[in-house]
C-alpha cells in the first residue's frame, strides 16, 4: 500500500504547489525536496524511508521502542538513506513531541488513528504539529460494517493472523467524522496575531456535502487481489471510503 500512499502525498502536494504558483516548473518528484516532514507512528518505517528518499528532511516517531530500533536498523542497511542524512528516528509519542517548538511542513500518520484511544486528542496533536499552511495526511480504516467484517472479524477471528485486540471496532473513525472534526477544529496557539487560530480547516458547512479541493480530500484505498496491488480510488468513487481510506487536510496560512 506504500506506493499508493506516496503517490497520493506527492500528487496532492504537487497539485497545491501548482495552484499557488502556476508558473512553477517543480516536478511531482521534487515536491518534497527540503521539506520538514514528520511521520507519526512510523512503525517499521516504510513510509518514513520513502519520504526521505524523496529528499524530505524526515523525522519518524513511534511510541514503541522496538519499532524505532527496527526502523533504524532497516534504514542503516540502505547506504543512500544513511548517507543522505534525511532520516531521523525518535522514540517518542506525538503528544510528547508537541512540547518541543519545532513544527512541520507535512505531518503524516498512517494506520495509527484506529489504534489510539482518544482519536480527537490525537488528531488535535497532529494538527498542532503542522506549520501554518502545512499539510496533514492520515490514513485509517472506517467504522462501517464492511470494515468490521474485513478487518476485525476476518483477520482477527477467522484467519487469526493478527493478534486479537489489534483493532477495536469502536476506535475506527468514519471519513465523515474526520471531516467534521476539521470543520470544528481551531488551532490553539500559533502566535499572538495569528488569524489561523480562528479559521476552521474546512470551511464548508456540515450541511454541504462538499469539501473544497484546496482544503481537504478523501480517497479510498482499494486492494485488488487479482492484481495483488493497492490502488487509489478515483475522487468521489461511490463506496470507496467504506474501508481503508486516506485523508488530506491543510492548515490555514497565517
Amino acid at each position: 500500500m506504500n506506493p499508493v500512499r506516496m503517490q497520493f502525498i506527492r500528487d496532492k502536494l504537487h497539485e497545491i504547489a501548482a495552484d499557488e504558483d502556476t508558473s512553477t516548473s517543480l516536478q511531482p518528484d521534487q515536491v518534497l525536496n527540503g521539506l520538514d516532514v514528520l511521520d507519526v507512528g512510523c512503525g517499521g518505517g516504510l513510509l518514513t524511508e520513502s519520504l526521505a528518499r524523496m529528499n524530505a528532511r524526515t523525522t519518524g516517531i513511534d511510541a514503541s521502542k522496538s519499532n524505532i530500533s527496527i526502523a533504524t536498523l532497516h534504514a542503516q542497511a540502505d547506504p543512500r538513506l544513511r548517507d543522505s542524512g534525511n532520516i531521523n528516528y525518535l522514540h517518542t509519542s506525538a503528544e510528547t513531541l508537541l512540547d518541543q517548538p519545532k513544527r512541520y511542513d507535512v505531518v503524516c500518520s498512517m494506520e495509527v488513528l484506529e489504534h489510539v484511544d482518544n482519536p480527537s486528542q490525537f488528531l488535535a496533536t497532529c494538527a498542532e504539529l503542522v506549520k501554518p499552511g502545512g499539510h496533514l495526511f492520515l490514513s485509517t480504516i472506517s467504522r462501517t460494517p464492511l470494515a468490521y467484517a474485513l478487518t476485525i472479524l476476518m483477520t482477527e477471528e477467522i484467519l487469526q493472523n493478527v493478534s486479537r485486540g489489534t483493532h477495536t471496532y469502536s476506535k475506527f473513525v468514519k471519513p465523515s467524522e474526520l471531516v467534521q472534526f476539521f470543520r470544528e477544529y481551531r488551532s490553539s496557539s500559533t502566535g499572538p496575531n495569528s488569524s489561523s487560530a480562528l479559521k476552521p480547516w474546512i470551511t464548508t458547512p456540515a450541511s454541504a456535502n462538499y469539501i473544497p479541493r484546496t482544503e481537504a480530500e478523501l480517497r479510498g484505498l482499494i486492494y485488488n487481489p487479482l492484481a495483488a496491488r493497492w490502488h487509489l480510488a478515483p475522487r468521489d468513487a461511490w463506496g470507496a471510503l467504506e474501508c481503508n481510506y486516506i485523508f488530506w487536510v491543510r492548515k490555514p496560512k497565517n
Binding site: 516504510l46 522496538s66 464492511l146 476476518m154 493478527v162 486492494y223 495483488a228
Partner: peptide, 26 residues
C-alpha cells in the same frame, strides 16, 4: 469472494511486510 480475497491477500501482504520488519504488532 471479493471481501474474503481482499482480506486474505491484504493480511498476507501486511504480514509479509511486518515480518520483514520484525514488527510484532503492538
Amino acid at each position: 469472494v471479493d471481501d474474503w480475497a481482499e482480506v486474505k491477500q491484504g493480511t498476507d501482504e501486511c504480514l509479509k511486510d511486518l515480518r520483514r520488519l520484525g514488527w510484532t504488532g503492538d
